[in-house]
Design a protein around this nucleic acid. Structure first.
Lengths: 255, 255
DNA sequence: GCACCGAACTGATCAGACCAATCGACGCGA
DNA sequence: TCGCGTCGATTGGTCTGATCAGTTCGGTGC
């Protein structure tokens, strides 16, 4: 065990960076329930005094906890404990999808291939009529679009809406983090260029039909096929990019 | 769509907080590949000058990106782009498991119930002899322990080792984020108190046997059973806690 | 009773100083 | 020549205090 274990295993006091003390203490207070969602913390100035650090350091601590989704800062109004809902705590997740390239994108898709089929099956079993109607409306927006921004946005919304039907906010937040606008835009652009946008539309239609039929098995299969289609495209795209890179290094993103 | 969409949809320039500009620009440079893993950035002072912000603000930006796992700072040495591996970018993930309570823990387990069976099945199909040997050694550490720290640590390692066999680092990082020492400790303590620690050991043994047999279906089933056992315990534990809370509000954690 | 305004509060940003860890050049001694 | 310690320059870490910019809320006047 490392000497830094435990929230307040004080004795050794391994000279942790000053900024870290407030972070750990506040996190611990929240984990222990002494601070609850929506609670307001003292002002930055008071906190700094309480933890015996300068205001700059206190601000860095607050910023860290804000980035983690644990705290919320309102200019002029104060620092508050966030709702602590999964969506808050997993907001940072999106950087993975934003920044990842190449092999990591494949890995991300493999994870989605584990989650989305299970989620879609669950949704098929639980969906209410109103929820299905909403999904149908989103599907119309995908179909009526021409592969541009609208379509990409609708596509993302489509999958999010389905995952939300499961009622599992954590699952929804994770799945949302595994998708990204930019990646989805690439997928659509690629399919349109190959004249295969119909494939994507058909995938979505099949998923929707499975939901309508409230058939979990069909939903699972349809979702699996869809993710696999995206994965198939990505693998092909990566190969092309690699080949172009080899032919003309450093100019892969042109056009 | 909100007016703040897009990384550099410049024209409106919606007066974003000063600190945010460097964050978005650096993130964009990384996403575009202009900054690569291991690259060193200019000093904080130079960066501040370049982005026309004060050093304090620049520091907050760097701090944010560090928290997100995108950058790495070495005291006295400089600021570097992290390896950008999933494990870096998903480090923040652990706060979810650390802080979550009640219903969110159930949700987390439901996600694990989607991931771990799939991962274990994949591991069964891919495991090498050396990897299996390592898992077996870890299993011995679980069995020889008595439910204390050692056991809990070995338990976590056991599952992580299996997921790592899949070769999917993103999956491994996500799954690790969905587990936490404190939660696992609670599970073991609870099972020991009920005299049911044998259940957990048997679950692990079954998973291991399925891996040895390189039987994905058996592995999937065994992993599912294991997560369900933990979920069963958690639901019972939550009910008990709720009941005690109702009887003696505010004293649930005593003893 | 209500809309408006301003003072007090609180976070956001800035500036400059000094502390602490790192790294590399230099020089001493084996 | 090689090895190692020292010292100074570089760079992140922390502190202080001032000023800018939203929020809140109570008072003021219609």
């Amino acid at each position: 065990m490392s000497p830094t274990d435990g929230p307040s295993a004080a004795p050794p006091a391994t000279r942790m960076p000053v900024t870290r003390r407030p972070i750990e203490r506040i996190k611990a207070m929240i984990a222990e329930g002494r601070l609850r969602p929506g609670d307001r913390l003292p002002t930055e100035r008071d906190l700094a005094h309480e933890f015996e650090v300068s205001r700059s350091s206190m601000r860095e601590a607050v910023r860290t906890l804000t980035t983690l989704g644990v705290l919320e800062v309102r200019h002029g109004a104060g620092v508050y404990v966030s709702s602590l809902r999964p969506a808050d705590l997993l907001e940072t997740f999106s950087v993975l999808a934003e920044i990842s390239q190449g092999d990591t994108l494949i890995e991300v898709l493999q994870v989605r291939r584990m989650l989305e089929p299970a989620a879609t099956a669950l949704a098929a079993a639980r969906a209410t009529d109103a929820q299905l109607e909403r999904v149908g409306a989103i599907l119309d927006r995908i179909s009526s679009g021409s592969g541009g921004r609208e379509t990409v946005a609708a596509d993302l919304t489509f999958h999010q809406a389905i995952v939300q039907i499961t009622g599992n906010a954590t699952l929804a937040a994770i799945n949302e983090g595994l998708s990204s606008r930019t990646f989805n835009a690439r997928v659509w652009r690629g399919h349109c260029a190959d004249g295969q946008a119909a494939r994507l539309r058909q995938d979505h239609e099949r998923i929707y039909q499975a939901l309508l039929a409230r058939d979990p098995d069909a939903a699972r299969a349809a979702a699996t096929m869809h993710v696999m289609e995206v994965e198939r495209w990505l693998r092909a795209d990566l190969e092309t990019a690699t080949a172009e890179e080899a032919a003309a290094p450093g100019a892969a993103e042109a056009g």
